[in-house]
Design a protein around this nucleic acid. Structure first.
Length: 586
RNA sequence: GCGGUCUUAGUCUAGUUUGGUUAGGACAUCAGGUUCCCAACCUGACGACCCGGGUUCAAAUCCCGGAGACCGCACCA
């Protein structure tokens, strides 16, 4: 009935992807499993190229570390990080119309119980609160069944004997936080520094129904950037300060407005629209990434998250969104200012000290009272207990000890009565050379599969009734196609030589001799191969070939011997197509 | 999870209302022919009723269960 799906780009892109082996739904022979995809030969390469571009921008250009950790994570980690509490939502179902609601949302709306209060309640308490306040189904007025928790993390057991709970990580970030101390050592104990992890994450979505947009197992690229909150300046900001960002501000969203503001990175920081400089920097880099993946600036925007939309760890969050034909604006990356939330959680839960030491520019001299036990007196006075008394004294507040001795002539610690002669009280100078603090974190987090999808959708073009994937040349899964014009008269042999020459020079080459030349061009266009080299009869006499451009279908002619150098420069973006040889036919 | 619609070769689809011969087509793919640059043409080949159960002499078609897809609701920390 609804045939808008048939016409949508999403359907066309998904069909093409399936047909040409970019990706498809996994486990098809067993009926398929929702939320899992398999990338085929072309897709795997495209995804690698996209992830490498991300590395190029974030790892190479900004000197950020890359790491890799496991997807299965001991329960303690996600208990400490707050995920076990926050990935779980109490839900109720109406007995009459079977509609489902978040119990905490209902309580907030109809019983005036705030979400923070509701969060602390047990399932029974929620049930009671719903009944006591007479909350019924907003749709049909029916009553609710007992609330149930929905945990969207995958749970498993670690080891053969039940006991240790493990979770599939719903994000790669915690893998970085728990290794902070070692990573900080690798950074030679200097802030700021950043660590990125690109890997699989798992979320047991209730209903993943949007192809690559919502998966149960997906690839996430989490970048945690650690900095000193007292020195929040971003020394790389100047590189991007004139880049413009389109932002839909929270204040506008509250007014139900979709109006975006467009301002430079410099202004966004100056006007405190983006509170953390590093966050602004990464948002600019994220825009650059999407632009280089083929998404025009006007199809990108950032939206500021409203207070109740933000993740439990975040102080200020933006989502980077790209306009997708089927669903409108879709999140491709999240930019959260996580403050010191995560490291503090792991410090408390694990007992490990994750603070960093900062040396003051000038050491601070402090004079303070020190209480020093005089063992020569304590020994005879307390005998065997002397050691214990000394220890208690060292823990006591020196000011208090001194005051008590002066006022009362004694000081009581535990059951012991300490006299003035038992201690030496003096003013002591100490030099404080630095302090310890927990670093703050800004986190850009990309969904690799979503980047893949938008790159594919934005590459999708129809030209003269033919489909072509107009990938930016540096992410194309195959770089060059080599075609003998005819499969006879030795053209195929010559073409194979050229293929070999190019492959050995490091290019991703595909050879195709099946069907008419037009058909092969069409096949190549659909796979998004930017350049086609055709070997014709002229090649046999003068050693030149034609090079065809995927997007314009123009051709130039060049000698075979120049190809490796020309093509490498072309793929590095140092040459344009017209520079590759002399133009043929217009 | 709930409700609705749906599932036929690599892809798109006809056929399901009213059960009945060998499930038809297009494109793609492969082999051969033809072809001096944009899905041409000729010959041939390969290839499918989502899974399980039931009703029936007979099931792609009807019934039940399951899986998956799409749409709406809810969910997406």
């Amino acid at each position: 009935m609804d045939d808008s799906g048939k016409e949508s780009k999403f359907t066309a892109v998904n069909e093409l992807a399936k047909r040409r082996g970019f990706f498809w739904n996994s486990y098809e022979i067993y009926g398929g499993a929702g939320g899992f995809v398999t990338y085929g030969p072309l897709g795997t390469r495209l995804k690698q190229n996209i992830e490498n571009k991300l590395r190029e921008l974030f790892v190479k250009q900004t000197g950020i570390f890359e790491m890799e950790s496991s997807a299965i994570t001991p329960g303690k980690v996600f208990e400490a990080s707050g995920h076990v509490d926050h990935f779980k939502e109490p839900m109720v179902e109406c007995v009459k119309c079977n509609k489902r609601f978040r119990a905490d949302h209902l309580l907030e709306e109809y019983a005036k119980i705030s979400s923070t209060e509701a969060e602390k309640m047990s399932l029974n308490e929620i049930h009671e609160a719903l009944e006591k306040n007479g909350v019924t189904c907003p749709d049909c007025g029916g009553t609710f069944n007992a609330p149930q928790q929905f945990l969207t993390m995958f749970v498993t057991t670690i080891g053969p004997y039940a006991g240790a709970t493990g979770y599939g990580r719903p994000e790669a970030a915690q893998g970085i936080f728990v290794e902070f101390n070692r990573l900080y050592a690798m950074a030679r104990e200097k802030l700021p520094f950043g660590v990125i992890q690109i890997g699989h994450a798992l979320r047991n979505e209730i209903s993943p129904r949007q192809g690559l947009i919502r998966l149960r197992e997906f690839t996430i690229a989490d970048l945690e950037f650690f900095f000193d909150p007292e020195e929040p300046q971003c020394h790389l900001l100047r590189q991007v300060e004139n880049e413009t960002l389109r932002i839909l501000l929270a204040e506008n969203r509250l007014k139900d407005s979709e109006e975006t503001v467009e301002l430079t990175v410099k202004d966004a920081v100056a006007k405190r629209i983006i509170r953390a400089e590093w966050q602004a920097f990464f948002m600019a880099m994220a825009k650059k990434l999407l632009t280089e993946l083929g998404v025009p600036a006007e199809k990108q925007r950032f939206i500021e998250k409203l207070p109740w939309e933000k993740a439990h760890y975040s102080s200020q969050s933006f989502d980077q969104e790209v306009y997708v034909d089927r669903w409108g604006w879709v999140e491709v990356s999240g930019h959260a200012y996580r403050t010191d939330y995560d490291l503090t959680c792991h410090m408390k839960a694990s007992g490990a000290d994750m603070r960093v030491y900062k040396e003051y520019a000038t050491p601070v001299e402090k004079e303070q009272l020190a209480v020093k036990p005089v063992m020569a007196k304590l020994g005879p006075a307390f005998k065997k207990e002397a050691g214990k008394v000394a220890e208690l004294l060292s823990k006591a507040d020196p000011e208090e000890v001194a005051a008590s001795l002066k006022k009362n002539g004694h000081y009581t610690v535990g059951n012991y009565r300490v006299l003035p002669e038992h201690v030496d009280i003096s003013l002591q100078k100490t030099v404080v050379r630095g302090s310890r603090f927990v670093p703050h974190v800004v986190e850009p987090s990309f969904g690799s599969d979503r980047l893949f999808y938008v790159a594919l959708e934005y590459a999708y073009r129809v030209k003269d009734g033919r489909v072509l994937l107009s990938f930016p040349r540096d992410i194309a899964p195959v770089q060059v196609g080599v075609y003998p014009l005819m499969s006879k008269d030795g053209l195929a042999d010559k073409a194979n030589e050229v293929r070999k020459l190019l492959a050995e020079s490091g290019l991703m080459v595909e050879f195709d001799e099946a069907g008419s030349i037009g058909r092969r061009y069409a096949r190549a266009d659909e796979a998004g191969i930017p350049l086609g080299i055709t070997i014709d009869y002229e090649t046999l006499s003068d050693g030149t070939v034609t090079i065809r451009d995927r997007d314009s279908w123009q051709q130039v002619r060049s000698p075979i011997k120049d190809l490796p150098e020309l093509l490498h420069k072309y793929f590095q973006g140092k040459l344009d197509f017209e520079d590759l040889g002399t133009l043929l036919r217009v």
